[in-house]
Design a protein around this nucleic acid. Structure first.
Lengths: 215, 215
DNA sequence: ATTATCTATAGATCTATAGATAATGC
DNA sequence: ATTATCTATAGATCTATAGATAATGC
């Protein structure tokens, strides 16, 4: 358990692993699939071919790791930004507003999320877990009317990803309005009164322009 | 333009093409991807290996054809079932109720739709076109409140597919209730009053048990 | 001395085509 | 005679590993 600092070898190994994961994210984001040879991956990551097998037994595990890394990092970022917001409905709505805006602020991450449709919904980590928690809290507080949390979560994720696709095809300066409109729709879906829907989605966002975001 | 009846050769060719498309649908539905050799496809379709190239230049075109065929056939089926329903909101809601139920009634078709990511939303044919038309008609008739049709359509498709995933993991006799719940959520999303939401989703469905459906 | 990385390659695919065979049309 | 289908195969990948090299720890 003693947390000794990572040695130089360990840092180098982590750099290589990170290079592979980022190359995989880039390829997956651009192409929409992972039908690519290991050689192309290692070239994109600028590491030797055989090095791949020091880190992953096959392409499938690399892709899983690349998607998981993207979702975890994003969830952690939201978590930190919204740590001191009490109203679960506001946390929920603001998270969704920020996530759709990734299409504009962090296109690669957005494309990874858009391509990994199932993962966002079913993964036992990342956004799905937090969104479920927020939905349940908002329901318990009487702010949302929810018949079944699984369906509510699925519809949320479905609207989120589909709206990101629409935004990816739209002009960048139209993204924010489209995002907020989708979020208002989702809040209506959970029975929130119109006045409150409008108020929550008009709240100022934490300042998170591209430069301020994690690498 | 003279519609002469298809010759025996043409019928045989169509049978072969259909066998390839159905094999592709089966594989795509089961595996969730199309990372499979042409040899495995032709074996599943029970045709000679080289025959593949008489019909498709590559796997990609076969997959496109397989997805398009599934979506078109489903859209045509809905179209026929609901041809004499006047209320666009009812057409919309009933189409969605029936489509989610595909998870139970026609699992292979449902899986193809669930796996085909963007196609359901962006394809210039099939369900997307009809759903857009119904949304616009319901909006024009004052039954839906819609800010932007693209976002509305995206959210509809997103909820639909995500709900089908939830239903695929649920017990078969829970599917109908989950489906209708999702549809009620979508109708609320479009500002429909609760009483009307409940009424529309409680309407009897056309009788469409598995045996009555198209091949 | 240890460990990660790199280079080179054997063996296993997989694709696309050429040429043979079978089925139909006339 | 024509056309779809089938069989066989050349050539092009692509994967996984073995062995060499480079970087670090002691």
């Amino acid at each position: 358990m003693s947390e000794r600092p990572p040695t130089r070898v360990e840092r180098r190994k982590l750099r290589t692993r990170t290079a592979l994961i980022e190359a995989a994210q880039e390829i997956y984001a651009e192409r929409g699939d992972f039908d690519v040879s290991i050689q192309q991956i290692t070239e994109a990551a600028d590491v030797g071919f055989g090095t791949f097998y020091n880190h992953f037994p096959s392409k499938s595990e690399l892709l899983d790791a690349a998607i998981a890394q993207a979702l975890e990092a994003h969830a952690a970022w939201l978590e930190e930004l919204l740590a001191d917001v009490d109203d679960a409905a506001v946390v929920f709505a603001t998270s969704m507003r920020l996530t759709v805006r990734l299409v504009r602020t962090r296109p690669r991450l957005a494309k990874v999320m858009m391509n990994s449709r199932g993962a966002l919904l079913t993964a036992p980590f990342g956004h799905a877990v937090h969104a479920r928690r927020d939905l349940e809290a908002a329901e318990a507080a009487g702010r949302f009317v929810i018949e079944n949390v699984d369906v509510a979560l699925a519809c949320t994720a479905g609207c989120l990803i589909a709206t990101m696709h629409v935004c990816a095809d739209a002009a960048p300066d139209a993204v924010d309005a489209l995002a907020d409109q989708a979020v208002r729709s989702v809040l209506r879906m959970f029975g929130m009164p119109e006045a409150e829907v409008v108020r929550i989605v008009a709240l100022p966002l934490p300042s998170v322009e591209p430069s301020a975001e994690p690498a």
